[in-house]
Amino acid sequence: MRGWRWLVIVPYFLLATLPLCWLFLTSLKTQEAAISSTASLIPTTDENIAPGGLKFSATGDAYRKLATPHTGKAHAFFHYLFNSVIIGLLSALASVVLGTGCAYGFSRFRIAGTRDWLFFIFSTRFLPPLAVVVPVLMMYRLFDLPNTHLGLILLYTAFNLSLAVWLMKGFIDEIPRAYEEAALVDGYSPFQAFYKIILPHSATGMAVTAVFCLISAWNEYGFALALNNAEAVTVPVYFAGLQGNIQGIPWPQIAAGVLIFVVPIAVFTVLVRKHLLRGVTFGTIKQ
């Protein structure tokens, strides 16, 4: 009876996934095959295939070339990937640590203006990066922070803190207060109650929050572009810089790099799929 649903799902599913399949196919091609005006669709292991057909000979060259610096670039792709990993991981960690503490404070203590503070925190997410980046850049120049990993880590931590606080508050609010009260009766100090009761119970929440902070730092472009031109360049900025390259854009290499760059995110998406709704709505909707 509900067969009509496939009339909607199948076409959209194809539209959504074909670009990603094409990404994979492109990463197996040579530059000539990738920018050929007759697209080939079927990878084969044959060496000699006449151009213009549906088949092409698959090669891992694009992946191998990622290890050597591209013309006009100081480093190879993996250098920038490493920057992304370091900056993403450390800023996610910092956001979760600060965010969990803050969320616990607002969840369990009476603090004057709690609602206003929470909405201030929320509102920081609305600011367009380009509208706040210049003062940050000026401030960073005083401390020699532009072009450093630390500079981006601090900025992403601040940027993701709103998400971390709101998500963690949702998770901590769900832990019954009776647990801590029992611990206090047993002679725990308030801080021990936090450390030994709340933290273990919010481990899932912290992991989920960390994943969302990591993804948003991983994908960020505006801040990274404005604050960096040399040392701490992340993958999105590196890729964008390959545009307008004199030798033509190396599409197979870009496809290979993009694939390596997005596969971890796709894996994380699957891992946190039960919490996606919470993550993208700042914990305002709970499933």
Binding site: I9, Y12, F13, A16, T17, P19, L20, W22, L23, T26, A34, I215, W218, N219, E220, Y221, V235, P236, V237, F239, A240, L242, Q243, I249, W251, I254, A255, V258, F261, V262, I265, A266, F268, T269, V270, R273, L276, V280
Partner: peptide, 23 residues
């Protein structure tokens, strides 16, 4: 199906935008 459909929104707009130039 639902999980696969959700993947595009988790990807980097800057990187995917560059790739769409190719498509």
């Amino acid at each position: 199906v639902t999980t696969i459909l959700l993947v595009p929104m988790m990807l980097s707009p800057a990187v995917m935008g560059l790739y769409w130039n190719f498509i």
